[in-house]
Design a protein around this nucleic acid. Structure first.
Lengths: 143, 143
DNA sequence: CTTGCTGCAAACAGTTTGCAGAACT
DNA sequence: AGTTCTGCAAACTGTTTGCAGCAAG
C-alpha cells in the first residue's frame, strides 16, 4: 500500500519532469505514516523532527503536489486550517466531526451519493466533487 | 419577514443588554436586503455606500452578533472568505457550488437528512449541524 | 552546467484586537 | 455619567511568493 503510493508519486513526478529530493521523500514518508486529516502544521513538525531544516514552505508546496498526483485531498473543516487526507482509489467518504474532542469519524453512504447525483442532474449540474460534514458530539463527548 | 427579523434582533439585543446603534441598524438592513451568501467584504461595501465611515471591524463584529441572535449562519465555501446566509426557521438547505461562475444553487432533500440521522445514530453521534456542498459546473458553465 | 528545488524572510489576505474617542441609555 | 460601540490601525494566522544559493539530472 505504502509502496504503491510511493510508486504512484514517482510516476507522477517522472511524467511531470519533477525531481526526486530528500525533502519530498521524507514528506511523503511522513504523510503516508500519518492517520487521516493531518494539518500542514502537524506534518511540518513531524517532518522537521526526522529532518531538521525543512521549511514550512516546502511542506505546503509538496502537499499541493501530492494533491495533483492524486495521493492526497484537501479537507477544510471548521478550524481554520487546511488538512489533508489520503486518497484511496475509488473510495469516497464523508465526515462526522466532533466539536467536543475534534475527533473525525468517517463514513460512506451510497444512497446519499446517488441522491446527490439525482439532485445535480435535476439542475443540469456537473459534479466534480462534494463534501458532507456532520458536526456535533461523538458518543464520548455527548454526556 | 424583514420586520420579523428586525424584531428578533431587537429582542436578542435587549436580552443581552446590547445597544441599538446606527451602524448595527444599517448593517442589519443591508444584510436583510441581500440575497444569500454575502461575503463580509460585499456587505461592508454596501453598508459603506449608504453610510460612509463604517469600519470593516464593525461589520465583522456585527455579523457575529447576528449569528448569535440566530439570524445568520456562517457558510464556508472553498474561496477563502467567510460568507453569511439568512437563517430561515425550520429550514435547512445545502449547496451546489459552481466553480466556473461561483453561482450557488440551493437545494433541500429530506431523504439525505434522514440518512444522516441514521448514520449519526449508528455512531452514537449527536448532530448539531451539518453541511453538504457539491462542487462542479452549473448548466451554463459546463459547456 | 543547467534547471528545478529549497529555506528564509517578506508579503499577503482575511480576520481579530487594543485603544481612545464617540454615542447610546 | 457610565458604559458600550465604533473606527482606526496594528496585530495575528495561515498560506504564498521572491530570491539567492543548493542540488539533482
Amino acid at each position: 500500500m505504502i509502496q504503491k503510493k510511493k510508486h504512484a508519486f514517482n510516476l507522477f513526478a517522472a511524467s511531470k519532469g519533477l525531481r526526486s529530493t530528500r525533502q519530498r521523500d521524507s514528506i511523503l514518508d511522513v504523510f503516508l505514516s500519518t492517520r487521516q486529516h493531518v494539518s500542514v502544521e502537524e506534518l511540518y513538525l513531524k517532518v522537521k523532527a526526522g529532518n531538521p531544516g525543512v521549511g514550512q514552505a516546502t511542506v505546503y508546496r509538496t502537499l499541493k503536489l501530492f494533491v495533483e498526483a492524486g495521493l492526497a485531498r484537501e479537507v477544510l473543516l471548521h478550524d481554520g486550517q487546511t488538512r489533508y487526507e489520503h486518497v484511496v482509489a475509488g473510495e469516497h467518504h464523508d465526515h462526522l466531526v466532533c466539536t467536543g474532542c475534534n475527533a473525525i469519524i468517517e463514513f460512506e453512504n451510497e444512497t446519499i451519493e446517488k441522491l446527490q447525483d439525482e439532485i445535480a442532474a435535476r439542475h443540469g449540474f456537473l459534479i466534480r466533487s462534494h463534501k458532507l460534514e456532520i458536526y456535533g458530539l461523538c458518543s464520548a463527548c455527548k454526556n
